[in-house]
């Protein structure tokens, strides 16, 4: 399959599309944290970095099998999230955002200073393992998991916490436990995405995982529509591919990118697909038509 795609598509586009898949996985993870549960996280790139470095070090320095390293990358990121989440998640709103940003920057600086990560020189010699087919298979798995979560008892509790944490607690939800779980799961997907990223780009440098990357992830989620799975996929696609389409504008590319972000927010403040719940509309119409039929039969 990969070979087939490579024969009909330019390798550059395959690389861009594969990277898009990697970002979708990470953005869906952030969506669970910020979109569904309402916790501001401005440091998502750090968990992405933990997964990337964790997996790459395992495959490069310890000859770990790739799939094991992929899973390990996710687990390491989730562990980092639990360690950071315990103190940080007592804060809410902008304060939580700024503390997650702070932890993100600290992780980056630590990676910059460690020997095992290669420090500022970066980590090279990573084998190419992330094929477009593998990445998009995992995108589908992620979409399934997120969809299943959002339609479960677990996911409902997360939305309730976002909507009103005091009422959620009064309804019997242990909000601190759920926040930690949501944070860890979201970061697990960031870690898996990071591991894929490492084995796609084959070279890692701490400067790639700064807060600019965290804000990029946040933009994917907010521009697409917080809490909406199709929205996040659309938002990530638009923002990842836009610079490619704007390539002809060469130097003006990033200038227009910034202006586009402002304009998109002004004209769609809830994101491209924010506030659209197709599932609810389907259920509602089904119920309405059933209710209509029963009254018609009764009358």
């Amino acid at each position: 399959m990969s070979a087939f795609l490579e024969s009909i598509l330019d390798p550059y586009y395959i690389q861009v599309l594969t990277l898009l898949g990697v970002y979708i996985i990470a953005a869906l993870g952030l969506n669970l944290i910020t979109g569904v549960t309402g916790m501001f996280s401005f440091g998502h790139a750090a968990y992405f970095a933990v997964g990337a470095y964790g997996a790459a070090i395992l495959t490069v320095k310890y000859q770990f099998p790739f799939y094991g390293a992929l899973l390990a990358g996710g687990i390491m990121a989730a562990l980092a999230a639990v360690i950071i989440g315990f103190p940080a998640l007592r804060l809410t709103g902008d304060y939580l955002g700024i503390v997650t940003l702070g932890f993100g920057e600290i992780i980056r600086v630590v990676f910059l200073n460690l020997d095992i990560t290669g420090g500022a020189l970066g980590l090279a010699g990573i084998a190419k393992e992330s094929s477009i087919v593998l990445v998009y298979t995992l995108v589908l798995v992620t979409i399934y998991v997120m969809y299943a979560l959002q339609n479960s008892r677990f996911g409902r509790a997360l939305v309730a916490i976002r909507e009103d944490d005091i009422a959620a607690e009064a309804m019997g939800i242990n909000i601190s436990a759920y926040k930690i779980k949501a944070f860890a799961i979201g970061c697990f997907f960031a870690g898996v995405a990071g591991a894929l990223y490492a084995h796609l780009l084959l070279f890692l440098n701490p400067t790639d995982f700064g807060f600019a990357k965290s804000f990029e992830f946040l933009c994917f989620v907010v521009l697409g529509g917080l809490g909406s799975i199709p929205g996040v996929i659309l938002g990530t696609s638009v923002l990842t591919l836009a610079p490619e389409f704007l390539r002809s504008l060469s130097d003006y590319r990033m200038l227009i990118y910034g202006a586009l972000m402002v304009l998109m927010m002004i004209f769609r403040p809830n994101g491209l697909l924010g506030g659209v719940d197709l599932q609810r509309l389907v259920f509602k119409n089904k119920y309405k038509s059933q209710a209509g039929r029963s009254t018609a039969a009764g009358g």
Partner: peptide, 26 residues
């Protein structure tokens, strides 16, 4: 109330403490 949840989902939240499925079962 949980404003952006449906009426039914609001009440389902009330059932939270009388049910048990966690994220792995989800």
């Amino acid at each position: 109330l949980f404003g952006k949840m449906t009426v039914l989902d609001n009440v389902k939240i009330g059932q939270h403490c009388r049910s048990s499925c966690d994220f792995l079962s989800a």
